[in-house]
Amino acid sequence: MHLAKRTIPVAIAFVCGIIQVVDYFFKIESVNTWAQEIRSWVSIVAIFALGLGAVNVLRVHLKKVRQAPSESLNSILLLITFLVTISIGLTAGQSSKPYKFIFDYIIVPTGSAIFSLLAFYIGTAAYRAFRAKNAEAAILLVTGCIVMLGKVPLGEKIIPFAPKWTTWIMEVLNVGGQRGVMIAGAIGFVAVSLRIIIGLERRTYGVD
């Protein structure tokens, strides 16, 4: 059990991890080929995992439909569209007209609709954030107002220095802060990756 659940996964992670690191830094033809091969395998393994995900979707929504059919309209619709899309994809192929229709006229527009909600959510979040409850919130409010005015043509007419200040805020303060987060995050990534490769990240392997 220990061998299957821990030793073999750790060995695979170690070998694959080291090959990827060597591939990034060195020009060794055999290692570069293996690394490319491993990256292809990632897609293959993900496909198997996608099958697990599809089973989960079916299990969750079939259970809902069984338990309360009258309240499960969304689940019924999901199951129908799920089966229709899979059937068309498997029988007619992904280049077929019906499949393209689903993609171009259903998936893309609904995705864009959800994305567009972001504009309204930014408004509501900004409304809550821009309340000068304390010194930090007041600084945020003032900075936010300068940046907003500096980004629209009308802003320069209201406050002439707004575009110049906006550039400074975005390119000095903002970039400085973001780089701090990025550098610290990257160091964290290195630490987690190291722990996974040498088998110290137990939860990754489902054991504790």
Binding site: L50, V57, K63
Partner: peptide, 30 residues
């Protein structure tokens, strides 16, 4: 797997409901 293991550690593996660990979609907006 992580969730199942945690319920096991808590001594309540029977409380784990697989249907409450939900795969939604690999598409960002979905």
């Amino acid at each position: 797997q992580v969730e199942r293991q945690a319920y096991l550690e808590a001594g309540k593996p029977e409380s784990f409901r697989p249907e409450d660990c939900r795969f939604i979609s690999p598409d960002q907006w979905a």
